[in-house]
Amino acid sequence: MTAVLEAHGFGKRYRRRTWALRGVDLTVPEGTITALVGPNGSGKSTLIRAWIGFERPTEGRLVTGGVDPRKDRGAAVGLVGYVPQSPSLYGGLSVAEHLRLAATLRDGFDVSLAAHYIDRLSIPLTALASELSGGEQAQVGLALALGTRARILLLDEPLASLDPLARREFLHVLVEAVRSEGHTALLSSHVITDIEQACDRLIVLGKGHTLLDLSISEALAHHRVIEGPIATPIPPDRLVGSFPSAAGEGLTLVRVPVAHDVSTEGPADGRPATLEEVVIGHMAAGRVRRTPAAVEAAA
């Protein structure tokens, strides 16, 4: 499958001291909806902004739809529809005026398509942006991105400020648009349930680099969770990380071979991991040292 977003040894350092990301190697295949997950400060926004040319890599190289955004930012922007965490609409303009504004800025912007999505989300075209809720503003941001008819969509935590219903509507429109148009979307989010519903691929960032890069089904098939203390030693290469459950019970995420035989598994093999546990386990691994002693202590 062709990769439309690529990072090769990508690193970004701010103020000559702090590395937001370093040594990131990943690819986003064409036609997928990929979730980009990681704790606050893990560099998700930096990576997304770099793919659209808003950040310049300190080291390494990025590719956006075959274009290096550092060398040709205009071409990269032309291939991308971008939805930032805060849509930052023009407060004094109506929704319809935002669509016309987009048409003046981008040749080929499809005003009627964007208006169609706005209409589906029941947002009045005549409403001023300042009168819209945060959720509605995010949805207008999505409609603007879809109106570009760009084949790559970069969505930087657009769900953060949305209520559950608005999140559901947002994702529904996104998934439908991506599937019908054959787009590729990269969605950064903290909300794992939404990712599970909408995405088919998962990238976990932590400690400034890639912790996991798999399809959702692979991520679920390749991980298991052991509840409570670990009875038998686990090989270091299988141990991912330990973290507490919502009830405070110690959980340990372990990797399993691809061909895991469920019929022969014993209690030491644990139970199937949920996507949330996969994500949290890898995020925990990115935060603490992965020594058996630390794992035992956490468990």
């Binding site: 991308v80 930032p84 609409l89």
Partner: peptide, 21 residues
């Protein structure tokens, strides 16, 4: 200041067009 430039720059490949407009 308000972040609207980010929206405009992500929509339009040419920042110069935005600047002139």
């Amino acid at each position: 200041d308000r972040g609207t430039a980010r929206l405009a720059w992500s929509l339009g490949p040419s920042r110069m067009r935005w600047f002139v407009q």
